[in-house]
Every structure is written in structure tokens, then in C-alpha cells.
Write a protein that binds this DNA or RNA. Structure first.
Lengths: 196, 196, 196, 196
DNA sequence: CATGAATGAGATTTCATTCAT
DNA sequence: TATGAATGAAATCTCATTCAT
């Protein structure tokens, strides 16, 4: 059954939900078509199972880090941004998951809700927490705490970088490292407490 | 024939490339299936024609504005950012186009290339030009001119906002106005010349 | 399209609704599978179309006869009974129709209703009319007009003969002519006005 | 194993032979699919076993009654007819059995033969015996003994009543009691010795 | 220009049946 | 006895595409 999920992930990833074929998935997995239906009642259920199987506690590491971070918040924010640019879409399974979410979320409300709750909301919470802590400690300008859209703006460049890479390929998309550097610079400058 | 393209846009937009059906497109357009093949040799060609038909000189206005802008670059940049947040994905046709690009670009290299050249590159060029002008005029910090990823970072929040809205719906996605305000603030603060 | 209906009638008749196959129907008809779906949206619709195509004004002849009959009602009743025994299930199309109705009516409410309204009710009406006329003319015993189940009882032997023939074959079922003779005798004796 | 037969009866009764599924039968019975095959080599054999399990000595009571009946034959015949109308298709198991026989007999020759020998022939024998006895005793008209189709005609209304109820439902079919009354009246009148 | 009958490959899904445990 | 994983054939249905008219 894990082999079926693996095969299905590949197939869905390569062809999308609509383009994927149960027969191809079965033969990728080296099993008979019927066996898939022994475990999953339909293509849609298989798809959701595949997505579920890719969910990983990606944020756990960061969330722990935020809690125990001893140094300045600016540095923590930098780490988070760098983590976003380097780690997002690095592992193939995660990359496929993101691709599927991107392409099919609008046709699978459950998927969209999962993405909102498990990925977006956690990411926003993480960043928002750091920002507020930095404001409280006086590192960041005070009004940053009152900008409800700030977390999303801080998250967006890393996410959009991944989207661009998926859409037009790693080689033609904006360079990962360059975006990362500029992102860090803009964020830290943009949050710095104003002189005078 | 424009009716066919309109119908096809709706159909592709609602069902995606794989899910769209020529028969449904024909009946949406009120013509016979055969007529579609009179104009378009295949489903894939119809799809590309649909995408092409949605291309609009979205950047033309901005590109002109950048050239003739009389005031401070900060204000120009603010206008561009605001334009991005409010206009991107506002018109239904543009929204569908973006959705299709997002979902199918990886399976239609021509589409991806079109997006890269006509949308991404022009957008990056636009923003980059403003940044360099602002640096030249002393409004923005000098090292902003040497950050090749900066334009992408400045563009990303507006783009990602549109992606989020497509994925999880206007109502559950991060608020458009809040993101816009935070985006402007972060960008202007982040680019400001550092006090000596 | 008539060839499809003919082929479907054969297929459904031989194999029943559940056992019939669209592929077999198509190849019987000498057309491609897909063409059937060009005309009929589903197997169930094809089935109903087949049934509809078999409906014939079987009772029209008898209904006219009842109206204009000049002689004694007993003789008319005898003719109707004989018609029932000899004609029902004689023509192959009608035989198949009856078989299908019998076997599938309980799973196709529309079919059951059609049978009730177009076959059973008309048959009962016909017989009831003759009985009442015979009572009115004094040929039949008076209380026959007050027995609401009589028409069904008079119809039943002919119908049940057809059912038996379908179930166990013409050769092993009760003999058609013998049943017919006994039926006529019982009916005419049973309706005769009582002496004294 | 009785649970399997019960479950199979329900399943076959609801869906017919073709529509019934071994998996559904197994889950109705609360056992695994494999276990059914432990007892029954195939779906067809299970079906026949189900039918066999429903056979009950329905006629035994009547056959005994005919032998020992002390009173007039007319009264005995009336009882038999009333028994037919009230008892046939009363118990759900018998009803399902009849339904299955009706629908599938033509595709299961063994079933048809079983029905002919165990149901039809015994019923005809029973009625025939009573008629002959009544003729011998002078209660019934003499020529009734020479009508080979008479028994079938006398049996038919009760049987057809059950068929109609199965086809179009108890509520829309001819009323059971009304048919019974008319049947008794017609039979007794129709068999009465003619006045000189 | 325009139709729609016709095709045939391929999609998802069901299901009786087998078999190792 | 009993399970349930596994199979593979066949079922219904869809759909892009062709072509005679």
C-alpha cells in the first residue's frame, strides 16, 4: 500500500489530477488495477490519501526554534526567511505536494482548507510571533505590530519563489539565493526601528 | 469564433485543461463540436489560443508611467505595488488566465515560457527600473541597485496574494488591503536610505 | 438508430437488464459502442427506450370490438379470452417486452407504472365493460356487476399462462389450447344467470 | 452458514441475480468474502442453494387436507382458493423466492424445472384431484373431469395476483380480497352441476 | 461555414474468484 | 474455519477526433 501511494504521488505529480490514470498508477506500483480499489474507493480518495501521506511536520522545527531562540529577533527572522527559500520545495515529495496543492486546490475544497490551516496559517503564525516579539523587545519598529498583513508579506517572497520555480523551472525562475539575500535585506531594513 | 474562445475560457477555467471537454465547450458556445475543429486543429491548440486571447497589455500603462513619472520614486513604487495588489486577478478573464497558467504551465512549456517572458520578465524589469532610478536619485539606499533578487522580492507579495486567493478563495486568503498596506510600508522602509 | 433498438431488444431479452452488455448490443447492431451513447445517455435510458419502442396498441382492436359488438356478450367474452390465450406473447417483440416487464418491473418503477396503466388497467377495463354490459342485458348473473375483483380473475388465466410459458418454456408449461378451452368454459358457466 | 444464505436471499431479492454482489452478500452476513467460497463454489451455486433453502412444504398441509376432507368438495375448493390468495407471497422469504424464480427462471433451467415439478405440478395435482372428486360425487358438472386445462385455470388467478403484486406493488395491484371473492364465486358457479 | 453521426481508444470502476496465511 | 490481499476481465461511460453532407 505504501508502494501504491508512492506510485500515485509520482503519477499525480507528473500528470496532475485529471491527467493521472489509475491504470498507470497501478503499473507504476507493480500491482493490478483492482488492488488500488481494494484500498481506496475512488480516484479522488486516492488523491486525498496521497496528499495526506505527504504532510510532514515541516514547521515543527521552526516552531520550536521560535520558542527557545536566545538571540536577537532579527537574526531569527533571517533564519526563518532563509529556511523558507532553501527548504521549501527541496525534497521531491514536498515539491510534488506543493505542485498538487497549487494546481488542484481550487477543485478540491478539502485540499484548500488543509493548505490554509496546516501550511498558510502556521506559517503566518510563526512569522507574526517573531515580529511581535521583536517589537516588544524594541528591535523592530513599533507599528510593525499593528500591520495585520505583514506576516503574509514577509512570507510571500519565499512562497512565490517556489511557485515560479514550479511554473517555469528552476533554471529560468528568479534565482533562489539572490531572492533570499534581497528578501532578508528588505525585511530587516524594513522592520528596523526608525532613528530619531 | 470569439464565442468559442469565450466558452473555452470558461470551460478550461472551471474544469482545468484535463477536465475540460470539447463537447461542453461547443454547447457552451452554442455551436456544433465539429465547428471548433474547423478553427482549431486540436484541444491543445484551442487551449493555447484561449490563453493567447487573454493576454492584455497589462503592463503598458505602468511602463509608460515609469518613464514619465515626475515625482519621487517612493511614491511611484507605492503606486506600482498598489496596482499589483488591486489589479492582479481583478478581472475574471485575467483571473482565469492566471489560474490556468498556474495549474497547467508545467505541462505546457510554451505557456510557461510565455508567462516568463511576457509577465514575469516585464514585471521584474519595471520594478527594477524604478529601484535603480530611486537609487540614482538618492532616494533609496545605494546597495539596493546591487541586489539582483530585489525586484522579484518586491513583486512577490502581490503575486502570492493572487495565488492564495485562487487557492483558498478571496474570503479565507490573507486580506488584500492589509497585505497591500504592509507591503508598501515594508518596501518603503526597507529601501530608505540609511541615516548616516 | 432503429438497428440499435432492435439489437438492444434482443440483448435485453436474452440476458435481462443486468446481464445485457452495451458492448454486445453495439456489436449486434454493427455499430461502435460510442454511438449508442450518442443517442442514449445511459444503459437505463436505452432500456426504457427499448421498452417504449415495443409498445403497440395491442388493445386497440379489442377495444373497438367491444364497442361495436352486435351479438351476445358471452360470445364476445369468449373471443376476448381466446384472443388473450392465443395472441399474448405470440409476436417475438411482444414476448420479449413481457419478459422484460416481468423480470425488471420491480427495479424500474417507471416500467411498473407503464405496465399498470397501459396493459393491466386497459385489460381490466375491457373485461369489466363486457361483464357489465352482459349483466345489463340479462345474459350474466346480476351480482357479477358488483364484484370488483372479477375482471382481474377473468384476465388472470391468460396472463398467467404467458408467465408460465416464459418461466418454464412453451413445451413444459400448461397447454395453451387446453387452458383456453377450460377458461372459456369456466367463465361462461360461472357468469351464467342462475336458474330459478 | 445460515447467515450467509439469509444475507444472500436479501441481496438476490433486492438486486436480482445479475445485480447481486458477493462482496455485499458477505458484508451483509458479517463474514469475509472468502468464506462464502468456502461453502459455495460459485455465485450460481450460492444462488441455487438460496432458492433451495426457501423451499418449504407449502402444499403438504393442503395435500393432507384433500385426502381427509369430510365435507362437500365445493367448500374444499373454496378453502384452497382462499389459501392461494392469502398465503402465496405472504411470508417475505416466499415472496423473494417467487420474485427470483420469476425473474431468473428463464436463465436457470434447473430453477425452472424445480418450479415446474415442486410448485406448479403439485398445485395442479391438488386442484385436479379435488375437481375429479367433486365430479365423482356429483357436486360438480360432469364434463369438468375432461378438461385438462381446468386445474391451471383455477390456479391461475391466485398466482397472477402474486405476480401483479410483485410487479407493481401491493397497493397498485388488484386488491387481494376482491380477487379472492370473485375467484371463489366464479369457480363455484362455473363448476356447479347444470340444472336439467 | 457548419453540422452531427460515427468512431475507437481509454478512463474509472466493479466483481467473481483465487490463494497464502 | 476464516481472512482479506490480490487479480484480471469486463462493465459502463467519456471524449478527442474525423468526415460525409
Amino acid at each position: 500500500m505504501p508502494q501504491i501511494l508512492d506510485a500515485a504521488l509520482e503519477e499525480f505529480g507528473e500528470r496532475g489530477y485529471g491527467g493521472a490514470s489509475m491504470a498507470a498508477t497501478a503499473s507504476r506500483a507493480g500491482v493490478a488495477k483492482g488492488l488500488i480499489y481494494h484500498y481506496f474507493p475512488s480516484k479522488a480518495e486516492l488523491f486525498k490519501a496521497v496528499v495526506r501521506s505527504c504532510i510532514q511536520p515541516a514547521f515543527a522545527e521552526l516552531e520550536r526554534l521560535v520558542v527557545v531562540w536566545p538571540g536577537p529577533r532579527a537574526e531569527l527572522l533571517q533564519r526563518i526567511i532563509e529556511f523558507g527559500h532553501t527548504r521549501v520545495g527541496e525534497e521531491p515529495r514536498q515539491q510534488m505536494l506543493f505542485k498538487l496543492l497549487l494546481a488542484e486546490a481550487s477543485r478540491f475544497p478539502e485540499l484548500a482548507e488543509f493548505y490554509r490551516a496546516e501550511v498558510l496559517a502556521r506559517g503566518l503564525g510563526l512569522v507574526g510571533q517573531v515580529v511581535r516579539a521583536g517589537v516588544a523587545s524594541g528591535e523592530f519598529r513599533a507599528d510593525a505590530a499593528d500591520e495585520p498583513g505583514l506576516a503574509a508579506v514577509l512570507l510571500a517572497p519565499a512562497a512565490m519563489g517556489a511557485v515560479w520555480r514550479l511554473m517555469i523551472g528552476e533554471d529560468r525562475a528568479p534565482d533562489r539565493q539572490e531572492m533570499c539575500r534581497a528578501h532578508v535585506a528588505l525585511a530587516l531594513n524594513g522592520l528596523r526601528r526608525q532613528p530619531g
